[in-house]
Amino acid sequence: MAKQLLAVAEQKARQMGLACDIAIVDAGANLVAFHRMDHARIAGIEIAKGKAWTSVAMQMPTANLAQSALPGGPTYGINTTNQGRLTVLGGGIPLVRDGMIVGGIGVSGGTSAQDIEVATAAVQAFAAAHTHHSTGASRTIR
């Protein structure tokens, strides 16, 4: 499934003219799969991994943190916690099945809005795959 999500995200990034770093983590926020598209920024490797980790660790899209972490915001300074690992840039989104977070995706390569769009394509594919799976329409998706 992680490889399928990488493929969906890469396809979306290509359509948008982006070269992205894409990370998929499991429910424990451990890296499961990673892809660096040709010419994607080297700095984006850790950023994408950080976004995926943060989406699971904080149980929310990283875009939610971007606003609240601004100076004067309710979570200002949160990015300095967890040895600086919390990433407050948009583009990290949890993967949810049956109301439980089962993993996350992090994308780096464009603006936060573009990264969110690429990540959302994979999240939608994940949701669609598990909708089909639960109805028995496709037993091959795991």
Rank of each mutant, 00 (worst) to 15 (best):
R85N: 14
G104Y: 06
T87Q: 10
G106F: 11
R85I: 06
Q83T: 08
D98Y: 13
R85Y: 07
G104M: 07
G99P: 06
A128D: 14
P71R: 11
A125V: 05
S112F: 00
T75I: 13
T120W: 02
D115H: 04
P71T: 12
I101M: 12
I93S: 04
L89W: 12
P71N: 12
G77A: 05
L95V: 09
G104Q: 08
G73E: 13
G77P: 00
G90Y: 02
A122M: 06
R97N: 14
G84I: 03
R85W: 08
E117Y: 02
T131N: 10
G92Y: 08
A125D: 08
A113C: 01
I78L: 15
H130A: 01
A113E: 14
I105S: 05
H130K: 05
G109Y: 03
T120L: 12
G106Y: 10
G91H: 06
I78D: 05
F126Q: 01
I116P: 01
A125L: 04
A125K: 12
S112P: 10
I78N: 01
V107S: 01
N82C: 09
I101V: 15
G84T: 06
A129F: 14
V118D: 02
G90S: 03
G84K: 11
A119L: 04
A121S: 10
V107N: 04
G91M: 06
T75Y: 12
G106T: 06
L86N: 03
H130F: 15
A113M: 05
A128F: 08
Q83W: 12
T120F: 04
G90Q: 00
A121K: 02
P71K: 11
P94I: 08
D115T: 02
S112Y: 02
S108R: 05
G104I: 05
V123K: 06
L95E: 09
G91Y: 03
G72E: 06
A129M: 15
E117S: 11
G92E: 05
G77E: 10
L89R: 08
T87D: 05
H132C: 02
G110M: 11
D115A: 02
G92F: 07
M100L: 15
G92Q: 08
G109W: 03
I116V: 15
L70Q: 15
T111N: 03
T131G: 10
Y76Q: 08
I105N: 06
G109F: 02
R97A: 12
I101F: 11
G92M: 09
I105E: 05
G84M: 09
D98T: 12
L86R: 01
R97D: 11
V102A: 12
N79M: 11
F126T: 02
D115R: 05
L95Q: 07
H132D: 10
T81L: 15
A119H: 03
V123D: 01
N79R: 08
V88L: 07
T131V: 09
H130I: 03
A128S: 12
T80W: 07
T80P: 00
A121Q: 04
V118L: 00
G73K: 12
G106C: 13
A119M: 08
P71F: 13
H130N: 15
R97T: 04
A121L: 01
P74C: 11
G84D: 09
P74V: 14
